[in-house]
Design a protein around this nucleic acid. Structure first.
Length: 416
RNA sequence: GCGACCAUGGUAUAACGGCUAUUACUCCGGUUUGUGGUACCGGCAAUGAGGGUUCGAUUCCCUCUGGCCGCC
């Protein structure tokens, strides 16, 4: 579908080849230089951030969510507006997630503190503390029954339904409907869910092809343009099990997807192995997106192991709670010591927040819950991760990836 | 001047004479990975002062101090 042009493959000083690469992905709404960080705007808005701010921080891609937009305002409204690009006033490349993650966040994880990144290395299957059976998502062979986060009403997503909604939303790239599992699920369940995700992938792909064929030549009444083609990404599952990851990547890699997402849960330690295992099986000439990952170290490990795109809510969520990235690690700008610190978050940072405001001011805004505080901190964090991934890309092109990684990790994580 | 009422962390409050004095906010920290996240978790911090009754007093009694209300 869209051209994915690999400019340079990652290798070390001894010429050893790695899965990583720097490329250009040519979408109908512009080229994406990969590796790239994808900014998350779940409800067609990056919380507290305008598209002008996004452009200013060199954000390349915008990702919204099918589940949320289906509930409000409804895909028919977005479609009537001329699609997501027109609706949200973002002319660059866009993606939508399928709603598959909500099978986890509203299902197994609902009402618990379980994250998709497991930190308990003593075992994945543990007794859930205070587990309550008020799950808002139920998985069946046909699809997932969700409850609306707004009014609790029932919403049933099938792979076909998710494709139809995502076609109406009109993002350049969208994802097959999958089931994101809990890291606490048993190996048996991980396999069961993975195999179901594979069946859903086939159904997603069939529906996608049907819809793509159907819309050929259709002119959007609002934009007066022919509806551009959309790319569909399959989603590799398999949790922390390398054999499942390999099997999932092989199965989906053999299917005619335009790109691939790596989804599901990992442990911090196993993430890079799971990613590397999957990428080794995926076709080289198609982009690979790491779903929901965005810690600085994860970019290096993901890219090294073959990933091209990352999206994550962490930069904006962290920012709203006062945690900001610096080259020397993250700090909580709400801490008392910043009350009278009249310097920017980082002197060398070129973001709008650092160019114009001090830590003391942002500290004050966040403490007083002024909306601008969340905006400025979000702008800084998004700029930080966007630039970090851009810098990693440049380091691949300059053949300095491993030196850059070593230097960054030393500064950011110290001895940890 | 007389009479009534009140006094608990920084603030606002709870506690029949009986567990380590409740809760919320503030304050000090932490967590956050395809956004149920303006969220969640942890911590510091108090019985106005003095005396009495009692095995035991935030609780009952007295004095003082400080509020507050009503009446000359």
């Amino acid at each position: 579908m869209f051209n994915f042009d690999i400019k340079k493959k990652l290798q070390d000083k001894n010429g050893k080849q790695f899965l990583g690469r720097a490329a250009v992905y040519e979408t109908p709404h512009g080229h994406i230089k990969t590796p790239a960080f994808v900014t998350v705007g779940t409800k067609a808005a990056v919380k507290g951030v305008t598209v002008e701010m996004m452009k200013d921080m060199n954000a390349q891609v915008f990702l919204a969510n099918t589940y949320h937009l289906h509930i409000a305002p409804g895909e028919e409204v977005v479609k009537a507006a001329g699609g997501l690009h027109a609706f949200a006033n973002w002319q660059g490349p866009m993606m939508t997630d399928s709603g598959g993650f909500q099978a986890f966040s509203l299902g197994a994880a609902f009402g618990t503190n379980v994250s998709k990144i497991a930190t308990n290395d003593s075992g994945y299957v543990q007794e859930k503390k205070n587990q309550v059976s008020n799950s808002m998502a139920k998985v069946t062979e046909d699809g997932v029954e969700f409850r609306s986060y707004k009014d609790g009403s029932k919403i049933f997503f099938t792979p076909e339904k998710s494709m139809q909604i995502q076609q109406d939303l009109g993002a350049d790239m969208y994802f097959a409907f999958d089931e994101c599992t809990s890291p606490q699920a048993t190996a048996e369940y991980q396999r069961e869910a993975m195999e179901r995700t594979h069946r859903w992938a086939k159904r997603s792909l069939d529906e996608h092809k049907r819809l793509e064929k159907k819309k050929t030549g259709i002119i959007n009444t609002l934009t007066k343009k022919v509806k551009p083609p959309q790319a569909l990404f399959g989603v590799v599952q398999g949790g922390q099990h390398l054999d499942l990851r390999r099997e999932s990547a092989k199965t989906l890699g053999a299917m005619d997807f335009d790109g691939y997402g790596i989804g599901g849960s990992f442990t911090k330690e196993d993430m890079q192995r799971a990613v590397g295992t999957a990428c080794a099986e995926l076709p080289e000439d198609k982009p690979r997106h790491m779903l929901g990952i965005g810690e600085p170290i994860d970019f290096f490990l993901g890219i090294e192991n073959g990933m091209d795109l990352f999206d994550c809510v962490a930069p904006t969520r962290m920012a709203r709670h006062g945690s900001v990235h610096t080259k020397l690690g993250k700090v909580n700008i709400k801490n008392a010591r910043f009350k009278t610190d009249f310097t920017p978050i980082e002197e060398s940072c070129e973001c709008y927040a650092c160019q114009n405001y001090t830590k003391a001011y942002i500290c004050h805004l966040l403490r007083e819950k002024e909306m601008l505080g969340a905006t400025l901190a979000s702008v800084h964090n998004l700029h930080f991760v966007t630039k970090l991934v851009d810098d990693i890309r440049q380091a691949i092109l300059d053949e300095e990836f491993f030196d850059f990684k070593k230097e960054f990790v030393k500064n950011y994580y110290g001895d940890k």
